[in-house]
Design a protein around this nucleic acid. Structure first.
Lengths: 212, 212
DNA sequence: TGCAATACTGTCCAAATGGACAGTATGCCA
DNA sequence: TGGCATACTGTCCATTTGGACAGTATTGCA
């Protein structure tokens, strides 16, 4: 009982060609192009392989009759990707145009890590070591989601003194929620109610210092 | 003298839509789809924008009359991406087929972070807290490059007792290089010469725990 | 003032494309 | 031996799609 249905050699070859051609041309091949590449005189031959690959879950075709509508799916290759804008700091609220003030973009597929694509996902470069207790270092890139309700213990970005700062969101029974830094050097506490929480941390990226 | 020719707002919007739609659908939009998205009643409007973008070098169309033949070019978008295989552990040496035993794949564009695409890049899931002193936690995903000569202070993956373990590579003047853990609980030292160094850490990914 | 670029509406057409059918041949398995 | 999946050839057809034309309106610039 394979989780991955077995592919015939031909089917494997067709799948690889589709992946390669898509990569090379920027759009998937047509049935006739596939047939042409393999020397088939009939595009139906290609269509048959496509059908088989679709049945085995390796290809998708979201819309019928769509030109070049083939799409690698499953573990075939090519996962959904997420362009996350990086902000140096978020002045206030949530920006209208996510890409307007972005310093750059990290394009990450973290489906493996369970991150869903949301238009409200963004990244922040960490300044300072106030979250060192959570092993978040200066220079780290924190991926956050705006609008997600924080749970106690979540790391959140909050607007304090007109600056985005990372804190831990703490909610204890019978007390109002508050934010706290994770560094004994800065034992600040902030009542959460007075602050704008800009996002809840969902992932972290770090570049090793000793690059080349 | 701009290196990048100025784009009008509309042109910018069209370019972004093409990028987004390509990403979402797996193939670039047609003229009519573009027109539809912006509420144009005539696809010629879209075609005009396309022409302008082509003239400014931001779009390509390699072949005429090719369905969905649009392609982002120049630095319009589309950074080089890197598919990094994730290993639970590396038994020995460096595997022939990088994707053979991979538990999954993270697809990351880290050009922003300065990571170059190398066929010898791979990722390892961290087990244990032996590197907690470097703020590398259990469950983190460490991106490594095989074959890169380590410098003193680099984090490396080494094969110890037939298991991949992360250590710090230390090279002190006049002494042989050795590896050390970054946790006072485990003050192990290993002479580097006896060990196989599988890779040098170049980046780190962490998923927040509270992913509901 | 006039000209060029931008930003569209609308129409006609030919090529590109996917889908459905009707067959043929081969190998494998019960 | 029959049945079934794979692997093709060939044809017809409705849509999809890009391209070319003919116009209109607006804006900025010389």
């Amino acid at each position: 009982m394979d989780s991955m249905p077995a592919l015939t050699e031909k089917q494997q070859a067709v799948l690889e060609f589709i992946a390669a051609a898509t990569d090379q041309n920027g759009s998937p091949p047509t049935l006739r192009e596939i047939a042409g590449h393999f020397g088939f005189r009939s595009k139906t031959a290609a269509a048959d392989h496509i059908r088989a690959l679709q049945a085995k879950g390796l290809l998708r075709q979201d819309a019928p009759r769509r030109a070049r509508g083939l799409r690698l799916s499953g573990m075939g290759r090519r996962r959904p990707r997420l362009d996350i804008p990086i902000f140096g700091a978020i002045p206030a609220g949530f920006p209208q145009d996510r890409y307007q003030d972005a310093k750059g973009c990290v394009s990450v597929d973290l489906s493996t890590l369970g991150i869903k694509s949301t238009p409200r996902t963004f990244a922040l470069e960490v300044r300072g070591d106030s979250m060192i207790g959570r092993h978040i270092c200066d220079g780290d890139l924190v991926v956050l989601e705006h609008g997600r309700p924080p749970r106690s213990g979540d790391v959140v970005a909050a607007l304090i003194d007109n600056q985005s700062t990372l804190k831990t969101y703490v909610q204890e029974r019978g007390k109002p929620p508050h934010l706290q830094a994770e560094n004994p050097k800065y034992p600040q506490l902030h009542p959460a109610a007075e602050l704008v929480i800009q996002g809840v941390m969902i992932a972290l990226l770090r570049k090793a210092e000793s690059q080349f």
